[in-house]
């Protein structure tokens, strides 16, 4: 079975983002970029399924600027077999990405698509669900455990009150939660090997997808800063402050 794993290039999760002075967005120039952490978990899960003999091929796909190639190479260093870049300099919103991915799915015919549950830049948490809807496939979002059988996949999901387990017929779409697995570090030999793996580039127009954004960002601002608080000396003073000053 072939598994498709979409990956996104985002600002590294440790970076403290800066909003641009003209309020057009956040500063991306000279900022460390990395693979979206939820996508690393998705790649790891797909590679583990291959190592277990369940999957035969893992294909990583990314949509965006040319530098997304690096993100695909990272996926291949973790163990993906090949990469597909849908190259576009346009702002790609989740619906557009879902349509691009549907076109890739139609071509590649995977039995399983594993995505991260959300990208840590736009925090949308939409693409997997949208892809499943466009394909008419079942979905299991926020997965913390995945067991793939011959015809069905069992997925344990993280929900607000605890956990639930779904059984879905294949093909299916799964989105990963943080607790699904611990992604491995790519070793130097694997990084070198990844450079030789095939990486195809296509354009949105080749896939027949209109990627025009549906939402216009009018402005991006910093949230209101919290005023610096005070340090209290001991528990008695803390209680006094809470009762008399903060009134809680």
């Amino acid at each position: 079975m072939r598994i498709l794993v979409p990956v996104k290039r985002v600002i590294d999760y440790n970076v403290k983002v800066r909003v641009k002075a003209d309020q057009s967005g956040v500063e991306l120039a000279n900022v460390k970029m990395a693979m979206n952490p939820f996508d690393e978990i998705a790649v790891e899960e797909a590679v583990r399924l291959k190592e277990a003999g369940t999957a035969t091929e893992v294909v990583a796909v990314s949509a965006g600027v040319a530098q997304c190639q690096e993100t695909l190479r990272t996926a291949m260093a973790i163990g993906a077999d090949r990469g597909i870049l849908v190259e576009s300099t346009a702002e790609l919103q989740p619906l557009a990405v879902a349509k691009l991915l549907k076109a890739i799915v139609d071509k590649e015919q995977p039995r399983l698509v594993i995505l991260g549950k959300q990208a840590i830049d736009d925090d949308s948490n939409q693409t997997g669900q949208m892809l499943a809807a466009l394909l008419g496939w079942p979905q299991a979002t926020f997965a913390s455990k995945v067991e793939v059988g011959a015809e069905r996949v069992q997925v344990t999901r993280e929900i607000d009150g605890g956990l639930e387990t779904l059984s879905l017929p294949l093909p299916a779409v799964i989105t990963t939660d943080l607790r699904l697995n611990e992604p491995r570090y790519a070793t130097l030999p694997n990084i070198m090997k990844a450079k030789k793996k095939p990486l195809d580039t296509v354009q949105p127009i080749d896939l027949g997808v209109d990627v025009a954004p549906r939402l216009t960002t009018l402005k991006v601002v910093e949230p209101a800063a919290r005023g610096a608080g005070i340090k209290v000396a001991d528990v008695a003073q803390l209680i006094d402050k809470l009762k008399n000053e903060a009134k809680v």
Partner: peptide, 30 residues
């Protein structure tokens, strides 16, 4: 149609405010 996630304010019937980058920025989208 697009989905607008986790709005925290409504400016008008088509304009909304939502946090991005783990709440480190607020985007106003139309």
């Amino acid at each position: 149609v697009a989905q607008i996630s986790e709005i925290v304010a409504i400016e008008s019937a088509d304009t909304f405010v939502r946090p991005i980058y783990a709440g480190n920025a607020l985007a106003t989208v139309k």
